[in-house]
Design a binder for these strands. Structure first.
Lengths: 329, 329
DNA sequence: GTATACAGTGTTATCGATAACAATATGAGG
DNA sequence: CCTCATATTGTTATCGATAACACTGTATAC
């Protein structure tokens, strides 16, 4: 920066101002500075700038995994929105692990992000303490947290599954199984099961819970899941699976057992993963707008940073889900 | 930091040393410092540390998109490897656009990353100039660059398709069509087409090129693609599609036209996307180990940063691809 | 007993920018 | 022609850590 200043015979403060276009600098001076900057190939040091101005222009976000297309889409939306405002997204992967999350939060806070976005519910005590001390806006997205730290943007797995079951019941299904995971306390799967149970109770139907071994349920658990359901409740007319990949596995198993879907047995999933679209039959499922979650969260973060957080706005923003009826149910 | 130092009656330099565990500090002193740090909830300011030590502990990586599972997997591998060494990944999305890439490189370089990883081949002049001036290790991954800037880690689309065609010819296919994109100069699709043409020439077969409208080819282009192929070369026995989604679309179109795959017409894809696995029939394709690309790139970056870049190692690391034969060809 | 090495800690300068305030010039108004 | 507001630029201190060197005390070698 000094080189640029010397080349023009001005002070480095003038160069700084010209580059940040936020204070009054004569148009000619600014032009000359920009020209010299380009000529010399000067790249400002944001680290020094951040230290001095106490604005890092970072926003940290922790997501469980990038390999889940839902989260990668949310991350991309966050990144795009922030970038447009000159903020850099600092991304970390918790791998659904609260201890790893704690380590990542520690690492992130050293970078002095202006806000932080979390995805998992369920944080360690230490994580909560650190976030509290950091005195920056904290956002939780995707799941609605039971004990919110700051504001949140997401949807209710319980409510979504509740609505889904009612919509399917309206199509005539009565002997409805929920095929989920065992030992899944605190996970999304458990929240979905709760929604299923609530809806079934309201409808006066018989609750039929089948659980395969361990989260996460995958395509290859489909065969075992189907066998389990058929042995417990052979007359079922619909299996609602905790997620689309499991539903796909169940449909594959139906095919090899010559059970026609949906005529003999209907199958539904959750999440609207790609597999739900390309499956034959297409899987009836619950669609979540991952991009919207990212966008709305980013908007909330930007509002908080601009201190535009109107008191009217809810602390918990609940986004609507969409039920996508395809051929499988 | 001063608070911690005062609380213990030591200098802040001692606190700094104790926290970085890289210089000699008495074990008792270190323990006391760590205890005080925990008690006070002190979070070191990495920004100040970076400015002073001139080590940002950032590595920048630009990928075309997070929504492509290949790239998100690579990104996750990079992040994991770097994190284990205390480096933070700075991620950006170019959206396959060299101009956007230039803007991102500018933004990234302000953060003084210790190395930078790029994905697209084809950079603007300004991008190259900036990277050169930055005097940090530059890596290109996925595609092997025509004009490498630094080192590279990836595979050759041309070579991969060449090998793929030969492997399929060995299975007996002779009237082989390449279904790709129009106006795709410089893209991966064009490189694959070149590999197809080379293999076909070696085999003494007739080149059959069909091109649908514009990149990127998607599932929904399958029907048009199939019609195009059938009108130009009705007797074809194999269609190699530029990517798996297109291959899936072609297979779907075959189904609705009652063409049996692979008996009447075989179909192959490229990339081993999820759709290739869940399709019925499963799609014969070329598998690329996206995770390995990330891992190997990270390793190369770490080597460069540790100055362990042995002269033996090639500047361009070419990873093997794998041909995955499924039912569709 | 003295010289030397080294472990452990402190002091000072500095990283490269920006904030806050100071100084100067310019033009309007009377 | 003088005063004052405003536009533009400069000066100095500072952000919070680390590098480099200085210093002290203890152990070791002879």
């Amino acid at each position: 920066m000094r080189d640029v200043a010397n080349a023009l015979g001005v002070s480095s403060m003038t160069v700084s101002r010209a580059l940040r276009r936020d204070t009054s600098v004569a148009p000619d001076t600014r032009a000359a500075v920009l020209k010299a900057v380009a000529a010399l190939g000067y790249v400002p040091d944001q680290t020094a700038g951040s230290l001095s101005s106490r604005r890092s222009r970072f926003v940290a976000a922790l997501i469980p995994s990038l390999n889940n297309p839902h989260f990668s889409e949310t991350a991309q939306a966050l990144s795009t929105e922030f970038e447009a405002r000159g903020l850099q997204l600092l991304l970390g992967y918790t791998n659904y692990d609260a201890v790893k999350e704690e380590a990542l939060v520690t690492a992130m806070l050293r970078r002095k992000p202006e806000a932080i976005v979390l995805t998992n519910d369920g944080h360690t005590k230490a994580t909560r303490a650190m976030l509290h001390r950091a005195k920056i806006p904290v956002f939780e997205m995707w799941d609605l947290p039971k004990k919110p730290i700051g504001r949140s943007v997401g949807f209710s797995n319980t409510q979504a599954m509740h609505d889904f079951v009612r919509a399917l019941a309206e199509k005539g299904y009565r002997r409805i199984v929920f095929l989920g995971e065992r030992d899944d306390e605190g996970t999304r799967g458990a929240a979905r099961r709760a929604g299923y149970l609530a809806a079934i109770a309201e409808l006066g139907l018989e609750p039929r819970l089948s659980n395969i071994i361990r989260p996460p349920a995958t395509m290859s658990d489909g065969a075992a899941g189907l066998d389990l359901v058929l042995s417990e409740w052979p007359d079922s007319d619909l299996i609602i699976c905790v997620s689309d990949p499991l539903a796909f596995g169940v449909i594959m198993a139906c095919r090899s057992r010559a059970i026609s879907v949906p005529e003999t047995l209907a199958v539904a999933g959750f999440g609207d993963f790609e597999v739900a679209r390309v499956s034959h039959p297409g899987i009836t499922t619950v669609s979540i707008d991952a991009h919207a979650i990212g966008q709305r969260t980013a908007q909330a973060v930007l509002d908080a940073l601009a201190d535009r957080t109107s008191a009217r706005e809810p602390r918990n923003l609940i986004l609507p889900i969409q039920i996508t009826m395809r051929e499988s149910a």
